[in-house]
Design a protein around this nucleic acid. Structure first.
Lengths: 252, 252
DNA sequence: AGCTGTGACTGGTCCGACCAGTGGACTAAG
DNA sequence: CTTAGTCCACTGGTCGGACCAGTCACAGCT
């Protein structure tokens, strides 16, 4: 048997797919920017020379991908949306629900990202940024007396600050997305925790230690503390076999 | 001003969305499993009591989310697909394209991810996996004599191997996506490099050092070497101001 | 100027039709 | 009895037209 070239299964390209591609390419090339409008469906029918059903199927796909939004009666036509993390988060949640993505993987990801961001931040931070971090700590302390949601919000602000200082928006976005996924996955269990106040105080303490290390410019220590903190905070929700991989991220 | 309850903007729920929800819920409840088939479009029209256009719009959304696949003429109806990360990858590619990420951010991201994966891998790797890594090195060496594309492929296999050993598919997916984006950004420049063979040999050498460190179980050294390697490999394409953030990732 | 009613639009949904393709059943040839 | 070929019911893909409820700009009225 001679070795034949690897053929790809040929599948017909549907008309609505071509429309989706054209729109996405125009977007990638910058010819279409968030806030701009697409022509109305009937106008698109004329431009693409397809039926309205086809145009609508394409718009439904774009809409479910968070690219555009259609509003009935809007004379300006479908709106090009700014990129949002929601579509990304939706996919992650979906995968996590069917255990294609485990909680352990998500937490491990956060330990890596956050640790690295903190390491970079401790080198690059300006005195002003350091002061801002300390302010977020104060806000976290105040939020403890409100409720868990407020604390969670303040915690988010802290991590955002870190990601910002690390000058890497990709880290920031990934962190936010994964953080959102983790919270939706365990929110019910966290909400029912008896000792939530204790947990929040402990978490605050750890955050303060991280800031101390950042102030000292010891990026390595700061990162280690941050990872350890996250491990302590979430490990209880992760089944034991997976924890091993997480612990491998902590040791020096 | 009294504090009024936070009202949500009310938006009409489209019929096709309800269909999507019903299918996804049935899937989440396990009533629908990958490999099973949905009724034909005309049958769904009867069950949902909507028009075929509406059913089709719902199917297009499900299809673009990687949930089902329709094949014309298939008497069994649309197929429920196994869960995959491809939809997630699609969204990440979109993110990478839209967020106007700089090359520096992308490379920094890879340095972090790859470094962390290697650190974990050096703790968790089995002897068999170590042997597999060494095999990928051999493959890389052989690929140098073919062309740059083959080398790139072999390099991808190496990093996939690492991500796999680190037991975190999210790392793997992220790495693949970002790697792809980086390559498309600089592929033209790399291809025209005069000393591509030298670069490949050097890269191979660095990879070998990483494997040596993994073999020795020194995760920290392995990660540092990996990050250093990536920095050396790509820094030339990154404008100076951004390099500072990358260097902050290397120092101990 | 400010308010109001109107009408030309929008998207959401429905209907009926046609086409090319698929796959199973049935038939005819071996 | 097996096999090759034909046929046909049915699939999804696309089309065109229709109606509705809602939106928005504008003209005309107060």
């Amino acid at each position: 048997m001679t070795k034949s070239p690897r053929f790809q299964p040929v599948q017909p390209v549907r008309a609505y797919q071509r429309i989706v591609e054209q729109v996405e390419e125009a977007l990638a090339r910058g010819e279409l920017a968030p806030g701009q409008r697409l022509p109305s469906e009937r106008e698109l029918v004329a431009q693409f020379e397809v039926s309205r059903s086809t145009v609508r199927e394409a718009l439904r796909v774009l809409e479910s991908n968070g690219v555009v939004r259609s509003r009935p009666g809007d004379p300006n036509g479908p709106e090009i949306l700014p990129f949002s993390q929601s579509a990304l988060r939706k996919q992650m949640v979906r995968l996590a629900r069917v255990e294609e993505l485990t909680l352990g993987e998500l937490i491990g990801f956060r330990m890596i990202m956050d640790g690295a961001a903190i390491q970079v931040a401790s080198r690059l931070r300006t005195p002003e940024q350091l002061a801002e971090m300390e302010e977020t700590l104060v806000a976290m302390r105040a939020a403890i007396d409100v409720d868990f949601e407020a604390f969670s919000e303040a915690d988010l602000a802290f991590h955002d600050m870190i990601a910002q200082v690390s000058r890497n928006s990709l880290i920031q976005t990934c962190n936010e997305v994964v953080r959102g996924v983790v919270l939706t996955l365990i929110s019910d269990r966290v909400a029912h925790a008896q000792n939530s106040r204790e947990l929040m105080l402990e978490s605050l303490q750890h955050h303060a230690e991280v800031v101390d290390a950042i102030r000292a410019g010891d990026g390595h220590a700061a990162a280690r503390i941050a990872r350890q903190n996250m491990y302590d905070y979430y490990a209880g929700y992760v089944p034991e076999p997976e924890r091993e991989a997480l612990r491998a991220l902590i040791d020096d």
